[in-house]
């Protein structure tokens, strides 16, 4: 068994038709431009990851929501929100929010960074393991949207004018950027590059 690339064939990125490969040619079925691998996949993924790395600091340290009650402003960061949940006795929900908003974005950046480095340094590592790791990172990433959805519901429902309102803080914008950037990072990563490393076609491990 061999890769399509080794056979001089390419899978159309849009419609999956297997075609013979020529530079700058189009898919006969869907007219998409055929490329053997996503162009500059590693560079693009790095760029998204590094930008996400920068935004993750304001996302965690700036207030994500601000509670205004009779003129008093109480800013809440993601972490202080989690602590408030623990204190109010909903530890289960606190864990969900903690994992979705803090653990997942950081783990995603570190995990993707590790996968990219291990590819570029050609570390010997089971391709299957690396792929499962990527699949998991890719799947879990969308759950980071959770906190933003929660905020939108809270903001809509807690609106008592002068008495009590919740507004989103600057941390929310930074957090949204992290979510989008990590999603784009996972999308621009071409998993086929992992298997291109194999020279002897031994993929039993």
């Amino acid at each position: 068994m061999q890769s399509a690339k080794d056979a001089g064939l390419v899978r159309c990125g849009e419609c999956a038709l297997v075609c013979s490969f020529q530079e700058n040619s189009q898919c006969p079925r869907c007219n998409a431009t055929l490329t053997m691998r996503q162009t500059n996949s590693l560079q693009k993924t790095w760029a998204y990851l590094i930008t996400a790395c920068i935004f993750i600091f304001p996302a965690n340290f700036m207030p994500i929501t601000i509670l205004i009650s009779q003129g008093n402003e109480t800013p809440d960061t993601i972490m202080s929100g989690v602590i408030a949940l623990i204190n109010s006795g909903s530890a289960g929900i606190a864990i969900i929010v903690f994992v979705a908003s803090i653990v997942v974005p950081i783990a995603k950046i570190l995990g993707m960074g590790f996968i990219l480095l291990s590819l570029q340094l050609q570390l010997s590592m089971s391709h299957k393991m690396r792929f499962i790791m990527f699949k998991f990172i890719d799947w879990v990433g969308r759950w980071s949207m959770l906190d933003l959805f929660v905020i939108s519901i809270m903001v809509a429902v807690i609106d008592k004018g002068q008495l009590l309102v919740i507004v989103p803080g600057p941390g929310a914008t930074a957090f949204a950027s992290v979510v989008v950037l990590t999603l784009l990072a996972a999308k621009s990563f071409d998993t086929r590059l992992m298997w291109d490393l194999e020279k002897d076609n031994d993929w039993t491990n």
Binding site: L17, V18, F21, R29, H127, W195
Partner: peptide, 16 residues
């Protein structure tokens, strides 16, 4: 381009 509808390449690992 020539194409072959009886073949399939894996989206994630390019196995033909």
């Amino acid at each position: 381009n020539k194409y072959n509808e009886t073949l399939i390449a894996c989206e994630h690992c390019d196995l033909l």
